[in-house]
């Protein structure tokens, strides 16, 4: 697969979701800010990677490692706003602090922040995210929104994230322990990003509940 096509698509997808969420959002909610922030950061990160890769000799790894911490924290905050349960909100807060502590400890032990992908941090952040999304989906299931769950914004955002992170988890674990062509990873990542962004676009354009 052509690397430029891949980069272009990886940039265009979050950018489209961001533009639609900012300017064509038909369902305004109290967590739109964090969705926009997440999409904006996703787009900015890809742009930065592209810039560093093409115009500088700087390593891309530290930015990817920072992304692995900041992006999940934004998403946790988004779900913090979605949830109505005080106990679950406290749990999200606790898990976010736990992730930051884990990130620091991981770096103190491995000491490879500038040279290697922080796989353990990524793994922990993904597991927390899957747990949070599952609880949010259960909350939607128990609420009145279930009546029209396909018109629920939080359902589509949760679905998008779940459809990206769950299938990607075994892929990233395999890539950590096996030497596989990077192109394969790119193709799969691109497909998953497409699915995730489709869900985000749907959430902004065709939903009417929280």
């Amino acid at each position: 697969m052509n690397i430029y096509l891949y980069l272009a698509l990886v940039l265009i997808l979050p950018f489209s979701s961001l533009v639609i969420s900012l300017f064509f959002n038909r369902n305004k909610t109290n967590y739109d800010l964090y969705l926009n922030l997440g999409l904006g950061y996703m787009f900015f990160n890809e742009l930065l990677n592209l810039y560093i890769g093409v115009y500088t000799t700087l390593p891309q790894i530290p930015f990817a490692n920072i992304y692995c911490l900041i992006f999940p924290l934004i998403i946790y905050r988004l779900f913090y706003n979605i949830s109505n349960s005080e106990i679950f909100r406290k749990r999200i807060k606790f898990m976010a602090i736990g992730l930051m502590v884990f990130f620091i400890i991981d770096n103190l032990i491995q000491r490879d922040f500038f040279t290697n992908f922080q796989f353990h941090t990524y793994l922990v952040s993904t597991l927390i995210l899957i747990y949070i999304v599952t609880v949010i989906l259960l909350q939607i299931m128990k609420s009145d929104i279930i009546h029209e769950y396909l018109r629920s914004k939080s359902f589509w955002i949760s679905l998008g994230l779940l459809l990206f992170y769950v299938p990607f988890l075994p892929v990233i674990i395999t890539f950590e322990f096996m030497v596989v062509n990077f192109e394969i990873k790119n193709i799969i990542t691109l497909f998953l990003i497409m699915v995730m962004n489709f869900c985000f676009i749907y959430a902004s354009l065709w939903t009417k509940h929280r």
């Binding site: 769950v166 299938p167 596989v180 192109e183 799969i188 497909f191 699915v195």
Partner: peptide
């Protein structure tokens, strides 16, 4: 690598569809 790609793609699709 092609076999790997097919394997990964099928697994990812399978997980997605089941989900």
């Amino acid at each position: 690598q092609v076999i790997y790609l097919i394997l990964f793609s099928v697994s990812v699709l399978l997980i997605m569809v089941s989900l």
